[in-house]
């Protein structure tokens, strides 16, 4: 089994660095193949989803309506979709536009509330680094709303070199995003990439074996 991992890994690394047409077309094939494999895996996954619902009905762990809702809605969408297709204007398309998209947006917008409660709870000026976190967040928060512009307009003085705002949150926010933020983002990109490469190498060369024995 490990030999599959080793060969697969080396071939895929090689296709990136070598100009061998066979390997390059193999790469595209394998991308398609993983999709084909995923179809079969999805069958298992769906079975696991439905089995859980049926188990809940059998063991009465929750009100019978809840697991039934999932089972019925899943089967309805799948059956209708298989018979009439998923094309433009059909039932499944309407379900997607009128139900899935707004519902997802609704759950997504819960984040507005959660970010408010997180900021109430988490920004405590406990030590130097949390004060820095707090300060940077506040600057950007003020710098991104019209209040920041208004403050800058109010405190603008005219120097020899032209107008200069003493309290200029928008510009400070811009600087933070532009300079230290970019530096840190790059450092993380380096570190994470090296981490990914080493994890890949460990998998390919069988050091991290886990259950593949």
């Amino acid at each position: 089994m490990l030999i599959i991992v080793l060969i697969g890994g080396i071939l895929m690394i090689a296709q990136y660095f070598l100009n061998i047409p066979f390997l390059n077309s193999l790469y595209k094939k394998i991308l398609d193949w993983s999709i084909v494999i995923s179809i079969f895996a999805l069958v298992i996954a769906i079975r696991s989803l439905l089995a859980r619902q049926f188990k809940a009905i059998r063991e009465r762990t929750e009100h019978i309506v809840l697991p039934l809702t999932t089972i019925v809605s899943f089967s309805a969408v799948v059956i209708i979709g298989l018979i009439w297709g998923v094309g433009e204007g059909g039932f499944v398309d309407t379900v997607y536009k009128k139900f899935l998209v707004p519902m997802q947006a609704a759950i997504f917008s819960l984040l507005a509330f959660y970010i408010a409660s997180a900021s109430y709870r988490a920004f405590r000026a406990k030590n130097f680094s949390s004060i820095v976190l707090l300060a940077a967040a506040s600057i950007v928060i003020i710098g991104r709303i019209p209040l920041g512009d208004a403050l800058a307009d109010m405190t603008t003085v005219t120097l020899k070199s032209g107008p200069f705002a003493l309290i200029d949150f928008p510009r400070w926010a811009e600087w933070i995003l532009n300079v230290p933020n970019v530096g840190i983002k790059r450092a993380f990109a380096f570190g994470i990439t090296i981490g990914i490469v080493f994890t890949s190498l460990k998998v390919i060369f069988g050091i991290e074996r886990g259950y593949l024995k």
Binding site: A118, S119, R121, A122, F123, F188, G191, I192, I194, G195, I196, F198, T199, K202, E208
Partner: peptide
């Protein structure tokens, strides 16, 4: 967001080395 809402976070490459 993980920092503000979680108790511990494996930052960046710490995540890839944790199991080791």
């Amino acid at each position: 967001f993980f920092i503000t809402s979680c108790d511990y976070l494996l930052l960046g490459e710490e995540f890839f080395t944790a199991s080791a």
